[in-house]
C-alpha cells in the first residue's frame, strides 16, 4: 500500500467529521435566514459557548450535563435573539446584522474575560478518547462518533424539512415569505421556534466540535465564516444544499490544510467564487 493512502484516508475522514459538524451549525443559520431573513452573526459565538462548555466536561456525567446545558443556553439565547430582532423586522438587513454583530462582540469578550485568551484543550469523554485502527492507521474514536451523531442529525433534519408540516411551512417561507403571511399562518411562533432550534444547534455543534477544535478566542468567527460559506454554496434556505456544501467545505478544509496549509484559504475562496460564478443562487436553488 503506497504511503499516501493512509494520509488521504485520514484527511477524508477528518473532512467528513468537520463537514457534519459544519452541517449542524450551518443548518441552524440557514433556517434562520430562510424563515426570518435575518443574518445572525452571533451564531459563531454560540458555537464557542458550546466549545468552552465541553472543555469543562471531563467525565461522562459532566459531558451529559454539559450537553444539556449547551442545548439550554443555545435555546434561551435563541429566544432572546428573536425578542431583540423583532422590533427591527421592518428595518434594513444591515441594521439586523449590526445588532447580531454587537451581540457577537459582547459574547466573545465575555468569554475571553471568563476563560482568558489561551487555548483551552477539550478532551473527549472517557472511552471515546482512544483511537481505532483503520487500514493499519490509528484514527481518533471521537471523530468517528461525531460522524455517527452528525449522520443521525442530518437524517432527522432532512426528514423534518422534507416530510413534516413544519418543514413544508419552512420551504414555503423560503420560496415566498409574503405569501405565507397572506395565507394567514401566524408565523410568529414559527419564527421564535426557528431561532430557538437554530441557536441550540449552534451550541450543540460547538459542544461536539470542542474536542476537535479546542476552545479558543477567534474560533467563533472561523466557524461563522465556514458556516456562511456553506450556506452560500448550498443555497439560501436549502437543507439538502447545506448538507452537500458542508461535506464539500469539510473536505476542502481538511485535505487543503493537510496538503497546502498556506493556500487552504485560497481554495475555500475559489470554491465560493466558482459556485457563485456558475450558480449565483447556490448549488441547489
Amino acid at each position: 500500500m503506497p504511503e499516501w493512502v493512509p494520509v488521504a484516508m485520514t484527511a477524508t475522514i477528518n473532512g467528513l467529521a468537520i463537514g457534519l459538524l459544519l452541517f449542524v451549525s450551518a443548518v441552524g443559520l440557514t433556517l434562520i435566514f430562510g424563515m426570518m431573513d435575518v443574518l445572525n452573526l452571533a451564531h459563531g459565538g454560540l458555537f464557542l459557548i458550546g466549545a468552552y462548555l465541553v472543555a469543562e466536561s471531563p467525565t461522562w456525567t459532566t459531558f451529559a450535563v454539559g450537553l444539556a446545558a449547551a442545548t439550554t443556553i443555545g435555546a434561551v439565547a435563541g429566544g432572546a435573539l428573536s425578542l431583540a430582532t423583532a422590533p427591527l423586522a421592518r428595518r434594513p438587513h444591515l441594521d439586523q446584522a449590526l445588532l447580531t454583530l454587537g451581540i457577537a462582540l459582547v459574547i466573545a469578550e465575555v468569554l475571553s474575560a471568563l476563560y482568558g485568551d489561551d487555548v483551552r484543550p477539550a478532551n473527549p469523554p472517557p472511552g471515546l478518547d482512544g483511537a481505532v485502527p483503520i487500514l493499519g492507521h490509528q484514527y481518533p474514536t471521537y471523530r468517528l462518533a461525531v460522524i455517527g451523531v452528525g449522520v443521525v442529525l442530518a437524517l432527522v433534519f432532512y426528514w423534518m424539512v422534507e416530510r413534516t408540516k413544519l418543514g413544508a411551512l419552512f420551504r414555503a417561507s423560503v420560496a415566498d415569505r409574503d405569501m405565507v403571511a397572506a395565507i394567514g399562518i401566524d408565523v410568529r411562533f414559527v419564527r421564535v421556534g426557528v431561532l430557538v432550534v437554530g441557536s441550540a444547534l449552534a451550541a450543540v455543534a460547538g459542544f461536539l466540535g470542542g474536542p476537535i477544535y479546542n476552545a479558543r478566542p477567534g474560533l467563533d468567527s472561523t466557524i461563522l465564516v465556514l458556516a456562511l460559506v456553506v450556506v452560500v454554496i448550498g443555497g439560501l434556505g436549502s437543507v439538502r444544499g447545506v448538507l452537500l456544501a458542508s461535506l464539500l467545505v469539510g473536505q476542502i478544509e481538511s485535505t487543503g490544510r493537510a496538503l497546502l496549509p498556506s493556500l487552504a484559504s485560497f481554495l475555500l475562496f475559489g470554491a465560493l467564487a466558482v459556485t457563485i460564478a456558475v450558480k449565483p443562487k447556490g448549488l441547489l436553488r
Binding site: 449590526l98 454587537g102 457577537a104 462582540l105 459582547v106 469578550e109
Partner: peptide
C-alpha cells in the same frame, strides 16, 4: 470590543 459591542446594540 465589549464596549464597542454594547455601543453597536445601543446605536441600532
Amino acid at each position: 470590543p465589549l464596549l464597542l459591542g454594547l455601543l453597536f446594540i445601543a446605536a441600532v
